[in-house]
Amino acid sequence: MLLLFVPIGITVDLAEKVGKMLENNVPLSEAVFYYLNFTVYFANLLFPLFLFLSVIWFTSKLANNTEIVAFLSSGVSFSRFLRPYLIGATIVASFAMFLGMYLAPIASQGFNEFKFKYLKKGKSVQQTRDVYQQINDNDYIYVSNFIPSTSTGMHFTYEHFEGNELKYKIFADNIRYIEKDSAYRLTNYLKRSFENGVETIETDKRKLMSFPFELEDLTPVEYAAETKSYGELLDFIAAEKRRGSPNIGRYEVVKLKKWSLPVSIFILTIIAVAVSSIKRRGGMGVNLAFGIAIAMIYVFFDKVFGVMAEQSDFSAVVAVWFPNVIFGILAVYLLQNAKR
């Protein structure tokens, strides 16, 4: 199934994007590397569906040749008939988990970097307005406008607290990282310090300072979570929660899908066997049509609830696991019906 669908996907994608690639003079080596990443990236996303369709195809062939009837008539239970499928699903799920935890993040980085470098040139993939972050337990920053290409922030504010008490506050028209000095340059610098009820004001036209952050880290690219292995992802989410990032829902969805996808492999395998183990008039075509309809509904639920979690306060746990719960119930029902 992978060998059938991936070349089709590459052909369709290339036909759609070849104009932009030629327009932006994409080197051949980078284009080849992009499609290697493309293959891993989409194979990881569609692994359960590929397995689902392949099980329907294979089991339908058995049913059409009356092999399943002969198998069950010999006294073997349906559960025993199902066992090799579950063993196969375990092997595939283990590979899919390894792929999602470690290999897919590498492919995702290459895939997305190429896309935004050549195919969506000029489109910002970082938050650029009203960036407000908590750096640590005591420090907060704000910039009204962030320019990723120059690592420059406009209307910069830095606040330092000790407990609930504001100790000092720094203002600047803009802040920019100066690489040769390994420091930040603040324009129209103003610092207000508070000590024992006494306010002290310090000003300067330009001032170099060091801060415990990097501007790029404050506004990670929108696909940042997809490019990290599982351990790195956990650390990244913890850091973003401390900073008060508005994209926590999106990051949580990526984390939870690394576990839900292998589970969905078992659910879809059971549905596929239950649906296609019965010999039907119309043969394999009916089973494949039914299977594709189920696959489309599954993808619809997965996408809709995923977007809800990314764009609102909707629970990421519910969004990611709801399709598996619904289709798990369907799998149990179809399995019981197939046994009868």
Results as ranks from 00 to 15, higher is better:
G19A: 09
L234A: 14
V198D: 06
G197N: 05
K17C: 02
I201V: 15
I265E: 01
F213V: 06
A63Q: 00
L45H: 10
K123M: 13
G19V: 12
G306W: 06
K180A: 15
R242W: 11
L234W: 05
K191V: 01
I147S: 05
Y41Q: 06
A15D: 12
E232Y: 04
F305T: 13
D302H: 07
S182R: 10
E30A: 13
E252K: 06
I270V: 15
F111M: 07
V76T: 11
M209K: 06
S124E: 12
V320W: 04
Q127Y: 08
E214T: 15
F314V: 09
E195N: 10
N174L: 07
N25H: 13
T90S: 13
R243H: 04
F111Q: 09
R250L: 09
V12Y: 10
G328D: 13
L86K: 11
A331G: 03
L268F: 11
F156P: 04
I248R: 02
D130Y: 13
E165L: 14
E202G: 02
A293S: 11
A309K: 03
E30H: 12
V125A: 14
P7G: 10
I237V: 01
S229N: 14
S245I: 00
I135G: 00
S77A: 07
A93D: 01
I87P: 09
T152D: 05
H160P: 05
Y177A: 08
G9W: 04
Q336Y: 12
F314D: 03
L261I: 12
S149D: 11
E16M: 04
L190D: 10
F194G: 08
I270K: 02
I270L: 07
D139N: 11
S144W: 08
S94T: 15
L330C: 14
T200A: 10
D302K: 15
V92N: 05
I329S: 05
V40H: 10
E23L: 11
V131H: 04
I106H: 05
D139Q: 12
F327I: 02
T90D: 01
N145D: 13
G231Q: 08
I326T: 07
D13Y: 00
S124C: 07
R176T: 15
I270W: 00
M284A: 08
G328T: 03
N24A: 13
S79G: 09
R129I: 14
A309E: 03
A272I: 02
V286G: 07
